[in-house]
Computed example of a mutant assay.
Amino acid sequence: MSKVIFITGATKGFGRIWAESFLKRGDKVVATGRNTEALQDLKKQYGDLVLPLKLDVNDRNASFEAVKTAKDHFGRIDVLINNAGYGLFGAVEETTEEEARNQMETNFFGVLWLSQAVLPIMREQKSGHIIQVSSFLGLVTLPVLGLYNASKFAVEGLSETLASEVKGFGINVSLVEPNGYSTDWSGASAFQTQSMEVYDAVKAGFNEASSAPGIFGNPEATANVILKLVDNPNPPLRLLFGSVAYAAVTETYKQRLESFDEWKTVSLEAHGA
């Protein structure tokens, strides 16, 4: 049975690749983006299987309207993929208030609004799957991406809580945790803070590490993986995408557990009698 998939940020990158993968196998896709002209070729090729919708996920009312339009058009929404987001590169000290708020508006609040909008539909259906495109940087951190890290850490906390609240309604929640991929995320779609010379060495180290062979994954390789995630009746809460993500997260968690254990007696002392 075909599914109805609602994808934000579907004009390029993961969103575009995944939308095409679903359409190729006969699923129905609500493909949203700020510029629907970039989706017209999908409409021409797949016809009634695709519904392009203009959407700025920062706009809560528009997010609810888009979900309503999708439900009215296809009759149901089986999967929501919150994919819209961007990277903000720069040291924490360099970041302006506007840059910080804009990063959180898109990467966190956009996820919140769409999740809230789709929940009544999925509760009525007694089924559904909300997939949040987070990042391995929602579990570990890198310098020069402080606000991006923070936005994804926020998505992690929100989504893990949400999963525990809606499981009883037949709704699953999954966090996709990609490492870096060769998409537009770190290119034209990214934003840069106004640089302070004192952080040049930190940025040079970051750039050197980012240019190492094999750091970036092949985005096309995620197409079959997202299908497996959507089709699994018992999807995981978290799914790491890429060998770099797997290695970085597992090593970081190992170090955290060792640190917790080292300070165990002090932690227990802090509880009091």
Score class of each variant (00 low, 15 high):
3 K>T: 09
8 T>N: 04
15 G>K: 01
16 R>K: 12
24 K>A: 12
28 K>V: 00
29 V>M: 09
29 V>K: 06
33 G>D: 05
34 R>K: 14
34 R>Y: 09
36 T>L: 09
37 E>I: 00
37 E>R: 12
39 L>A: 07
41 D>I: 04
47 G>Q: 10
53 L>N: 03
56 D>E: 12
56 D>M: 03
57 V>Q: 05
57 V>E: 04
57 V>A: 04
60 R>F: 01
61 N>R: 13
62 A>D: 08
62 A>W: 04
63 S>N: 07
64 F>K: 09
65 E>M: 10
70 A>L: 10
72 D>P: 02
73 H>K: 14
73 H>T: 14
79 V>P: 04
81 I>Y: 01
84 A>Y: 03
85 G>K: 02
89 F>H: 11
91 A>E: 12
100 A>T: 09
102 N>K: 15
102 N>P: 02
104 M>C: 02
108 F>I: 04
110 G>S: 11
110 G>C: 09
112 L>V: 15
115 S>N: 04
117 A>K: 08
118 V>G: 04
122 M>Y: 07
123 R>C: 06
124 E>D: 15
125 Q>E: 11
127 S>I: 01
128 G>W: 09
131 I>A: 02
133 V>W: 02
137 L>D: 09
143 P>H: 10
143 P>A: 10
144 V>H: 07
146 G>K: 00
146 G>E: 06
147 L>I: 12
149 N>G: 06
149 N>P: 09
152 K>F: 05
152 K>P: 08
152 K>I: 00
152 K>W: 02
155 V>Q: 06
155 V>C: 06
158 L>R: 05
160 E>G: 02
160 E>K: 11
167 K>H: 03
168 G>Q: 06
168 G>Y: 05
168 G>M: 01
173 V>I: 00
175 L>I: 13
177 E>C: 12
177 E>I: 08
178 P>I: 00
179 N>G: 15
180 G>K: 11
185 W>H: 05
186 S>R: 07
188 A>R: 07
188 A>K: 13
188 A>S: 14
189 S>Q: 13
190 A>M: 08
193 T>Q: 04
193 T>M: 07
200 D>S: 14
205 G>S: 07
206 F>L: 13
210 S>L: 13
211 S>M: 02
211 S>F: 00
212 A>F: 13
214 G>H: 08
214 G>N: 08
214 G>E: 10
221 A>T: 12
223 A>T: 05
224 N>E: 15
224 N>L: 12
226 I>A: 10
226 I>D: 05
229 L>C: 09
230 V>G: 07
231 D>Y: 10
234 N>E: 15
235 P>D: 06
237 L>H: 10
238 R>I: 01
238 R>T: 06
241 F>P: 00
246 Y>K: 14
246 Y>G: 00
261 D>K: 15
263 W>A: 12
264 K>L: 14
264 K>H: 14
269 E>I: 11
271 H>D: 14
